[in-house]
């Protein structure tokens, strides 16, 4: 099995180069090589979005990407954020504070079994990041949440509480909603 050298930045830390079987999915790489097990395998065919992680674009924007359907080669040299990278931590890696999105999901009892949660956290974080760059009018908030999270599947059906939590974060964070178009 051919191996390729893989290096990337994961949650702010440099990883690699490590020799990895070229057919390893990013999801397997995170779990098996880096012991980051917060990213979950759901459907394995890119439909359910449970495995969504964030990739930083050239302009610094965060793009949600499904980690189960692409192999490591795609992410060579990229900067990747997983659910483990969302909370603030001290130098010992201990959690100081959850991110606003994580807090809102807990406050709203958004998830139950939790399998889809990492994907929702990352997609919602990308949405907040996007709104910081390109705010929308209040009337559009529902629509952008729908566009960002509408494809994510939650079998405990926490959809309403997920959406409500994200709306709370958007409305309580200055600069994400503008007056009017």
């Amino acid at each position: 099995m051919a191996k390729i050298p893989v290096s990337m930045v994961v949650n702010g830390e440099r990883v690699g180069p490590v020799q990895v079987d070229e057919y390893t999915t990013l999801l397997d790489f995170l779990q098996e090589y880096l012991n980051l097990t917060g990213t979950k395998l759901g459907c394995g065919i890119g439909v359910c979005r449970a495995c969504t992680i964030l990739v930083e674009g050239n302009d610094g924007a965060l793009e949600p990407v499904r980690s189960c359907i692409n192999n490591v080669g795609r992410f060579n040299g990229s900067s990747v954020t997983t659910v483990e990278g969302q909370a603030q931590r001290n130098s010992n890696g201990e959690v100081l504070a959850l991110s606003p999105v994580q807090q809102a999901f807990l406050r709203n009892f958004s998830f139950q079994c939790g399998w889809c949660t990492a994907g929702f956290v990352n997609a919602a974080t990308a949405l907040i990041d996007d709104l910081r760059r390109r705010p929308v009018s209040a009337g559009k908030v529902e629509q952008v949440i729908e566009e960002a999270l509408g494809e994510h599947i939650c079998r405990c059906t926490g959809y309403v509480r997920y959406f409500r939590a994200v709306r709370e974060v958007i409305e309580s964070t200055p600069g994400l909603v503008k007056e009017a178009d």
Partner: peptide, 24 residues
């Protein structure tokens, strides 16, 4: 080939044989 392995092979198969018509 490298891009096929990185971008396509997880669904469309290492040898391009796909994973059922409904999926890939």
């Amino acid at each position: 080939r490298g891009d096929f392995v990185a971008y396509c092979a997880a669904c469309h198969g290492r040898e391009g044989t796909g994973t059922t018509i409904a999926f890939a």
